[in-house]
Design a protein around this nucleic acid. Structure first.
Lengths: 217, 217
DNA sequence: CTAATAGTGTCTTTTAGACAATATCGG
DNA sequence: CCGATATTGTCTAAAAGACACTATTAG
């Protein structure tokens, strides 16, 4: 006898645009927004099924995603039928793969549309995870463009962790951590010239031996 | 059409006995040792199925386990058939529920019998998780008896994290963290008398704001 | 008295944290 | 010259880290 188990998979896709975190939602036939999800296809893993769904439904290319991680598995039972959902976190640089369809929406994390409670829980948990990782790893590398100013890095840190930090201490700490390359280029920002930085080992998640907890000012 | 998905669940049950970490393994009909596991039963969650399996197969009572946590979900595809396994970590004080059956074995983590590779991966990951949690939480509370000496606490810390620490600095740090109660009792150990401690909020996992990384000596 | 273990305090080094002035450039 | 932004350094406070002796008790 086959187990009457409904197995699905979904994903929280984060992007960082204009000092805000965004996630991608899709609208189903009932005009409700929800996380991109799919049934787990026969003979496939949740991950394979999800990749297929994202490719065909919202046109996501492999190069659009910089980082993937399993979040957790949640289950429920309703009317004798069990549902299992494997959730993932994806991090993307601000690309525009999401455009071109009314079924796909990019929402700032602070102003999400009404969602099923189960999706709200998943997003909340995904945010927690991202927040924690920002403190002890180079995870921001996957949300920022390859080259960025120190201030942009700091702003993304503040957005993800939710706390403001002192400019000088942040810069000092990042230098001590030795994870950045200072580019020879500069960028014109308003009326000043600012240096550009990149992560030394882009596309790899480096863990710090101690968490980075800069203080506010 | 039902998805031909095999969904199972397994668990790494840790115990701390005599300065060593142990895990519980069971032996199946083919006389191979493996983590306790079960198929996910129809209309049930992986967790419910697992609890039932542990209760009926190895006589585990609710009071034997102090802490439970989902570890991760791993999947594989073989010959067109997909398998999904939701893994858990359980922490138990050194009880003796595991005795009385040849099918159940308690193995020190350093001397495990030959296991399926997939189980080895799960155990490795579980150890990593436990190790990390020991640094920033009161997780050791769930492996130790309710009352313990400072030295026992330190030894369990060293076992789980894999690094020796200085007695005086460890004691100072634990006092600063303010998570222990000093009992009025003492215990006779060899030729000296030693104080007993307990965790203030036993049965709750408290997270430290900063990780606890004492240095060796 | 001796052997074994528990228990404790201080100094040094490192890291975190607070804080303000100067340089550059476009207009 | 002015306004906006980028950049830089020092001092202080707190925490981590290294380190050695005394007290107790069973035998």
């Amino acid at each position: 006898m086959e187990s009457p188990l409904t197995a699905i998979s979904n994903v929280v896709i984060f992007q960082y645009i204009g000092k805000q975190l965004y996630i991608t939602l899709v609208r189903d036939d009932s005009h409700k927004w929800s996380l991109p999800s799919t049934r787990i296809l026969p003979g496939q893993t949740s991950f394979m099924s999800l990749e297929h769904e994202l490719r065909t439904t919202i046109g996501l290319k492999a190069s659009d995603i910089q980082y993937k991680e399993q979040l957790y598995t949640q289950e429920s039972v309703r009317g004798g039928r069990a549902t299992l959902c494997v959730s993932y976190i994806y991090l993307s640089r601000g690309t525009n793969w999401h455009k071109g369809s009314e079924q796909i929406g990019l929402f700032p994390i602070r102003r999400l549309p009404k969602l099923a409670a189960i999706n709200g829980t998943t997003i909340h948990y995904a945010l927690e995870r991202l927040h924690a990782k920002a403190l002890y790893s180079t995870v921001l590398s996957f949300l920022l463009p390859k080259e960025f100013t120190m201030l942009t890095l700091q702003e993304s840190f503040e957005t993800v962790t939710g706390k403001p930090v002192d400019r000088r201490n942040f810069r000092k700490k990042m230098n001590d951590l030795d994870v950045l390359n200072k580019q020879n280029k500069t960028k014109q920002v308003h009326n000043a010239r600012t240096h550009l930085y990149s992560f030394k080992d882009a596309d790899k998640l480096l863990l710090y031996s101690k968490p980075f907890l800069p203080s506010a000012t």
